[in-house]
Design a protein around this nucleic acid. Structure first.
Lengths: 93, 93
DNA sequence: CTGTATCCTCGTGGATACTG
DNA sequence: CAGTATCCACGAGGATACAG
């Protein structure tokens, strides 16, 4: 939970489960996140080896994010949580 | 994550997966939790229908906590997270 | 395009002491 | 036994502006 507990962490993982994304693409996928929060959560996920950050020395700059094997192993968890969340809303309603 | 995100929530669920517990028993199972935090997390889990609180009108007072069906449905998640946590520690080491 | 820098609010969580 | 009451520190998260 220390690794996954950030407000946007699992949301980011979920997006990256659909493939490699650039910074701006993640912003589009998470419309309400601020650049500051996106950077922070990405850096933490990187240092926890959930994802990889690849910088291409180009102009304009290009940076790509994709899941490591460790991160990809979270696929089941994300699905499980999605299902449980739906069940939860049903029961609580 | 809003429901499960408290610092002690999943730990409490994990204990209750082994059966009904009283307040003091939960304290013993979670040696570093303060009574204040235990109360708060229990009340939140109760209002989210993850567990049930049963008060017996006796002296001395007796209060028992046990999982609802919704809460019991978290068993898989807890196991999954345990496994992933171990894997995580191995890979990160 | 991919971020930093600054400033600020708020809530979580902890310490400690006390109570019906 | 099963909590409350108070007080406090810290940091996560957000708003806004700016930069290489």
């Amino acid at each position: 939970m220390e690794v996954l507990g950030g407000k946007w962490k699992l949301a980011i993982v979920k997006v990256l489960l659909t493939g490699t994304h650039r910074f701006a693409a993640l912003q589009r996928a998470l419309p309400t996140i601020t650049p500051r929060m996106l950077t922070r959560q990405l850096r933490e996920l990187e240092s926890d080896r959930i994802l990889r950050r690849t910088v291409y020395a180009e102009v304009p700059p290009r940076v790509e994010y994709d899941l490591t094997e460790l991160g990809a192993g979270l696929a089941e968890l994300v699905e499980w949580l999605d299902r449980w969340g739906r069940e939860y809303r049903k029961v609580r309603a």
